[in-house]
Design a protein around this nucleic acid. Structure first.
Lengths: 117, 117
DNA sequence: CTGTTATATTGATAGACGTCAATGAAAGCA
DNA sequence: TGCTTTCATTGACGTCTATCAATATAACAG
């Protein structure tokens, strides 16, 4: 098989076989949709550079409710999660497995994983 | 830097630096948006399993105009391209570089690329 | 030129999405 | 108790998206 969507070890790409289990296509599409907004890409990128980041740092020229909205979408998609709460501050972190799964589906070798914590 | 969004060799992830050039975030988001639909994920997956595929094979329970619509979106996003036209038939193929770029942005090692054609 | 087949485009419509103001919830402080 | 701060939720509004029917375009057959 060439470089491309491997889609989680599915026996994809057979000549007459159903191209992709509908569920898998929907699951993948849902994950991509979570990244289909500049603000959310920026948030994920920011989280990729630190163990966890306070919500108060995600001012992207957007209102606070809008940032919260994007955090919720990423959270419900399983791409990020709450790392800790200190007082009224909330810190988010990436869910590396979810991101790696997407990279893998796109045909990339999921990273050697230089140790999470 | 941990596993995560590398975003095309940008000096991302600095403590106080602007998290991500707005343009790059928008470009990435646009690419992800192109994959944010089950039909389009199925199309790309199908193309990942062959050198090129005839449009007439993309019947996903959708009408012909709808399939054409999705092909257009993927084409304008640069993820697929017309491979050849034979008579009234049109064959599409993947643009491997584009997919690899996305996988790379997600932190995956872009595939060893087993020779394109 | 007429007819047929395979894609693409247009137009219309219902539903989803991004955004913000207003409000709520929870934690800390006086 | 009351006030402040941080984040989440709700409600409203305009825009975008997915979908299909209808139509156009392009290539071939006769």
């Amino acid at each position: 098989m060439k470089a491309g969507l491997k889609v989680l070890n599915q026996p994809c790409c057979a000549p007459g076989a159903p191209p992709l289990p509908r569920d898998d296509a929907e699951r993948l599409a849902a994950h991509f949709k979570a990244l289909a907004d500049p603000a959310r890409v920026a948030i994920v990128n920011r989280l990729a550079g630190a163990d966890d980041v306070c919500v108060c740092e995600f001012r992207l020229g957007l209102s606070q409710p809008t940032v919260s909205h994007h955090l919720r979408i990423l959270r419900e998609a399983g791409l990020i999660e709450v790392a800790r709460k200190r007082g009224t501050w909330v810190h988010y972190r990436l869910v590396p497995e979810a991101v790696e799964q997407l990279a893998f589906a796109l045909g990339g070798q999921s990273n050697p994983a230089p140790g999470r914590g």
